[in-house]
Amino acid sequence: MLLATLAGGISLGFLYGLVALTLILLVRTTGVLNFAAAEVGMLCAFVAFAALTQFHLPVLVAVAVTLVFSGLLGAAVYCGIVLIRPADPLTLSLRTLGLLLIVNSVAYKIWGANSPYTFPRILPEGVVTISGFNVGYVQLLVIAFAIVIALAVWVLTERTRLGLLLRAVSSDREAAADLGVPVVSVDLMAWCMATVVACCVGILVAHLFFLAPDMMAPILLAGFAAAQLGDMQSARVALIAGVVLGIIQSASSVYFNQPELSQILSFLVLTVGLIIRGRFRGRVIST
């Protein structure tokens, strides 16, 4: 049972890590903590759902249409809450909180009535047995996608010219602009990329669990905790933190039989992690 719990927790934890990565991607590139990232992912999952079930588009076309939509949505969000009245990252982060509420309310209004929905099976069905626990192909895809995104974030920000520009804009917009960096274009690119990643996460969550306006709520909290433990900067640490959280939650559900504990544990892990990290940092500084 222990090994099965570990396997189940790891597959869940990578999902948390993936949500953390969508947050980190934008923080690292623009300094903005996008509280609405998960809700935007949910919105995109509904668009994919409509493309598949109402317009009966082929799977690849539906996914492509949704990804294009998400890119445009990212651009629209950037124009609507950033470009319209530029501000410091904290103010912009608070604006995304407003966006979260708007997206959530709109989704409830349009799709709340008949939710939760079952997302069409667009990925291959099947399982791989690990320690007596059957991990579905979709869960394996989540793990692979999370690792790819973590690597992509690292490569993009550390090893490409675009990443250099993104970091420059994130560090000091005015100085970057003075040096000829096209700030608006760089920001726009970052928002579009982050929204496309959020879209993929939304579709994967809907595929794994169910599609509903509130489907991201329990995952967002754990993802946020993982991202915080990664200092909103380190994709690697966030991914590891996500996996640790997944294992702890899975173990708490299996051994303590208390589903409510999983949310409390997210906060607990976050708090303890931040305290330990703060002390560690304090020691490094004093040394």
Binding site: M1, T5, G8, F133, F210, I219, S253, V254, N257, E260
Partner: peptide, 22 residues
């Protein structure tokens, strides 16, 4: 044999089913 607690709209059911298998 046991009473297992869950929540409404519980996203993941693997932990419950692990107990059921046991």
């Amino acid at each position: 044999l046991a009473t297992l607690n869950t929540s409404y709209n519980q996203p993941e059911w693997a932990s419950i089913v692990i107990r059921l298998k046991e």
